[in-house]
Design a binder for these strands. Structure first.
Lengths: 210, 210
DNA sequence: GTCTATACGCGGATAGAC
DNA sequence: GTCTATCCGCGTATAGAC
């Protein structure tokens, strides 16, 4: 009588399914009933594995952040490491844009988010940045990455030429953005990332001599 | 019988009250019942002024964006104008952080957001940026501003020293961030903004000769 | 233009049987 | 560990009186 069969639910399965729901239909679509239905069980069964729904959302967020590669931090020179890390961070966010507002609240007590913050900050300090500046750089990078993953800039414009023609002369061609939204967003992110790190390098040059 | 008294509700009053609710308790707290209660009417009365709840949220968003100063665009040199505009944009967002995820979806058909996009793009093109670059710069700036207003970086760290001590050595002092969150976030935004525009200026120098 | 009354479904969470 | 039954509140929206 030692557990005749595998439990129907595991934390992993719950998190996987919850992530799929959030990705498909948004954070608001994640309800205990919907989650249970997709798992083939009844809603109250979830409470054997998580105390609250909040814990489930936390686990979803942590699993996403856990996938971000941090290996370049402390290995490559800081400007290259910062760029590579930002790309990996953004890729993880963009794969789950509906979770970004939740994740952007900060690491809280989620282990993967704390590991990430620790690694970035540590790499910058080890590279020679003063602690206060390392904090600011970490913050600024998160602003940029989170903002770029929060939603598409290009898709924010309606594909309807008549909307712009009269009132917004400069936006004459804005309706075409939607058709190339991935390239537009990608190029904008790359431009900003390169410019931002470039600007930081120039500031680093002024403190280094000290 | 010519309207003996002022109507209890106007679109303005509804938008004001809705904004107050969202600011105080989040976007999810904005329900028609709650909104009506705070206005001293019954929920169904709202439908005399707005067709759906979605329209109300749109009006809240547009009112926020309408308050962003755009006067520097096309007047000051583009780097100074871009910085001043970004600060005004961020201030408007930060006053209503709970609406940022909604606003970050893009201008859609909201007039104030379209005016803003039109003004920024127009100023950059008039300054000599190629149209494709002007689009990217507008996008990148929105990423950064939205990300910085989405939530506090500093407040994302729990004020509990024991959480970090063992596992995250570099975050030894992170628990102190919460106490200075406004200064930390402000300084991080300023650092990123200056570095970003700095980096853009350097790129501008390479295209200008053409 | 605003009201009351009402329809109907979904939400998180708990108690207690098996 | 999973189930059934259940609590109770909140959501949008409509119908029709005043």
């Amino acid at each position: 009588m030692v557990r005749p069969r595998t439990p129907l639910l595991t934390r992993e399965r719950i998190v996987e399914t919850a992530t799929a729901i959030v990705d498909a239909d948004g954070l608001d679509a994640l309800s205990t009933r919907r989650l249970a239905r997709d798992l083939g069980v009844q809603a109250p069964s979830l409470y054997n594995h998580f105390a609250t729904k909040e814990e489930i959302v936390d686990a979803v967020g942590d699993a996403i952040v856990a996938g971000v590669d941090l290996s370049m931090l402390g290995r490559d020179p800081w400007p290259a490491a910062l760029k590579a890390w930002a790309r990996a961070y953004r890729a993880a966010f963009r794969a789950h844009p509906n979770v970004v507002p939740y994740l952007a609240r900060g690491p809280a007590r989620r282990p993967a988010s704390l590991r990430l913050a620790d690694a970035v900050y540590g790499a910058l300090v080890d590279a020679g940045w003063p602690p206060a500046m390392a904090t600011r750089i970490g913050a600024t990078m998160r602003y940029f990455v989170a903002g770029s993953a929060l939603g598409s800039f290009a898709l924010g414009f309606v594909d309807d030429p008549s909307l712009y023609a009269e009132e917004y002369p400069h936006l004459r061609d804005a309706h075409r953005l939607a058709g190339h939204h991935e390239q537009v967003d990608e190029a904008a992110f790359e431009l900003g990332l390169e410019a931002l790190v470039d600007g930081l390098e120039r500031r680093f040059a002024t403190i280094e001599p000290a």
